[in-house]
Design a binder for these strands. Structure first.
Length: 616
DNA sequence: CGCGGAATGC
DNA sequence: GCATTCCGCG
């Protein structure tokens, strides 16, 4: 059902300016971070909440940007509304023109570097939706200093957002020229000196530039509580939090030996140290998507370890491991709340740096999923003209959005054919969003940034305690049906490889394997039998789900929930009834308590791995 | 105001 | 995919 090309739209960097036209939410973010526009739109309220003070103006600006003179708030708001389903935004009820970014889910994958609030001054403390209160900027932790890029090199690149533009007057709409150059208005090449604080600036430069195009990596930590409100169950150890939300730089912008990454900032990210990830994927592949992936065991091992560490330390979703069927993922136990552990902050987006050597910027094939595709209306339409040639990198202004690159191969996709005829095993074309977790994540999801939401439900309407809790996914049917083939392919490939590789991998996984779910599935060496692997994964996945219950929004689809439901949905409902989320034990129950023990072991194993590999 | 379906365009 | 444009409904 899915082809590499069609599943990733949400993950691709393309959703950001540069490759295609700017998206509304990007634009909004852009405006939000500029003081010049604080009169028209500004952060307000809790994290992510913003109010459009002057709808018409915002619409005008938007229209200008898109060269749609006819734009008006009504239309713009429609577009905004579409984001509800995408979970990028939601409406703050009761407050006019007030919306809120769903930062828990949305991870600015594409724009992690966005400043939410400004740099200079503008940001209202209340507003900075920025995670971790750390600062008002999104940032992603550099892997290692070296990795981070040489300042010199990066300095020149103006972040699109970073600058301080001169504004575009309302009239300046003129620049419709673009079409592609997304930022007419922002063409600030240089940043306005005025408001950039050195540190700030340095930081930005540090972050964006190069890394930006691999935006895939960044993530953004979930913000536990930017507002500083006391929370009963803080995920973040106090000492890790930066007290001053406003301060863009609670920490030195320059990565120290340890890099920014340290838990301090955005644990969310797993940008594991590059040094650990010499994993070299095949060209364009995302392990999951690609039909093939070639890798070298050693790298893989390192990668795995690094990742494990990340997961372990930061609570990243182990799901990320799903990409590597041959590997048994140690599953860190999710501490029930009390353990805030290192992870503390939230988390959640994991990335997989796949590039190789440390000094290289990562261009990762991994993609993050922002959200499951909206169910959209029925199932109309079929023309998927994917590739439509985007006229992307027109190089010219590239300055602003350095990304572009990638997408090439995959994105073109060939998907169109499939969609239309999609034989689809079961439901013709139904997407099961609520449980997107399972369905879609399986293919690509790496992210999921919202794990800790359960503790702060107040902040996100869209992410109530997860009903999914009770769900006990069938080990192997149900949703496995149609992706099977593909999955199989993907999974198989790596395993099958000749003896050499295969063995190595086996060795790698051997250890964890024992810990893994007891007698999960027999696995044969050489990968002859791949199926088991798959099953194992499924299982793992299931467990994962339970462990992370609470994560996804169960309801997100509110109304939609009633529409088409699959049996799975029913299960979800069960969980929903119960106001509070189930304890892990409860959740685990379906699978057998034995697993819990296993988890512990896994945890230990993971820890060991971490230690061993704890290079950074 | 705000919502969301439908059609349409790029 | 992502709007844009219309539009009826509450």
């Amino acid at each position: 059902m899915k082809t590499p090309g069609d599943t990733d739209w949400a993950y691709k960097p393309e959703s950001s300016p540069g490759s295609r036209q700017i998206q509304l939410w990007h634009f909004i973010l852009e405006l939000l971070r500029k003081e010049e526009y604080h009169d028209v739109i500004a952060w307000q309220g809790d994290y992510g909440e913003f109010v459009i003070k002057d709808p018409d103006e915002v619409a005008r600006l938007w229209g200008a940007r898109k060269c749609k003179p006819q734009m008006n708030y009504d239309k713009l708001s429609r577009a905004l509304r579409y984001y509800y389903n995408k979970r990028i935004l939601h409406k703050t009820k009761g407050k006019r023109f007030t919306y809120k970014f769903n930062f828990n889910k949305l991870v600015l994958v594409n724009y992690p570097f966005i400043d939410m609030g400004s740099a200079g001054s503008g940001v209202p403390q209340s507003a900075p939706p920025v995670p971790s209160g750390v600062s008002t900027h999104f940032r992603f932790p550099p892997s290692t200093p070296s990795d981070v890029l040489s300042p010199s090199e990066e300095l020149r690149s103006p972040g699109v957002f970073s600058a301080v533009p001169r504004r575009i007057a309302r009239g300046s709409v003129s620049d419709c020229s673009d079409g592609t150059s997304t930022n007419s208005e922002l063409e600030e090449t240089g940043m306005a000196p005025g408001d950039d604080r050195p540190a700030d600036r340095a930081f930005r430069n540090l972050l964006h530039p190069r890394l930006s195009h691999d935006s895939l990596f960044r993530v953004y930590g979930a913000p536990p509580n930017p507002t500083g409100l006391p929370r009963s169950g803080p995920h973040v150890p106090p000492h890790r939090m930066h007290p001053e939300p406003l301060s863009p730089f609670p920490v030195s912008p320059l990565p120290g030996p340890g890099g920014l990454l340290p838990p301090t900032l955005s644990p969310a990210l797993s940008m594991t140290p590059t040094s650990h990830m010499p994993y070299t994927p095949s060209p364009s592949l995302s392990p999951m998507l690609g039909s093939h992936f070639s890798f070298n065991p050693e790298d893989m091992k390192r990668y795995l370890q690094a990742h494990t560490q990340s997961v372990y330390n930061y609570h990243l979703s182990p799901r990320a491991f799903l990409h590597y069927p041959n590997i048994v993922i140690p599953q860190p136990q999710r501490p029930d709340k009390g353990l805030g552990g290192p992870a503390g902050v939230g988390p959640h987006l994991t990335s997989h740096p796949l590039h190789h050597q440390a000094d290289e910027p990562h261009l990762s094939p991994f993609k993050f999923k922002l959200q499951p595709p909206p169910l959209g209306r029925k199932q109309r339409e079929g023309p998927t003209q994917t590739g439509g040639g985007h006229a992307p990198n027109s190089g010219s202004a590239a300055a602003s959005f350095p990304y572009c690159g990638e997408s090439g191969s995959a994105s073109n996709s060939s998907s169109s054919g499939m969609m239309t005829n999609n034989p689809a095993a079961g439901p013709p074309k139904i997407k099961v969003e609520p449980i997107s977790d399972m369905e879609s994540e399986e293919e690509v999801e790496v992210t999921d940034i919202s794990e800790e939401e359960h503790e702060d439900e107040e902040c996100d309407v869209f992410s109530p305690p997860h009903p999914n809790g009770g769900l006990a996914p069938p080990p192997n049917h149900d949703r496995m049906t149609d992706d099977d083939d593909l999955e199989e392919d993907v999974f198989k490939t790596p395993a099958a490889p000749t003896s050499g590789v295969g063995l190595n991998l086996l060795g790698l996984k051997a250890e964890p394997r024992e810990l893994n779910l007891g007698q999960g599935a027999p696995i044969s060496p050489g990968g002859t039998r791949c199926i088991p692997l798959k099953l194992r994964f499924k299982r793992r996945w299931s467990e994962d789900q339970r462990m992370e219950a609470g994560t996804e929004e169960a309801e997100d689809k509110k109304s939609r929930g009633e529409k088409e439901e699959l049996s799975q949905e029913v299960d979800l409902k069960l969980g929903e009834e119960n106001g509070d989320r189930k304890s892990p034990e409860t959740l685990a129950a379906p699978l057998g308590t034995g697993q819990r023990r296993v988890s512990s072991e896994l945890q230990r194993a993971t820890a060991q791995l971490s230690l061993e590999n704890n290079v950074c």
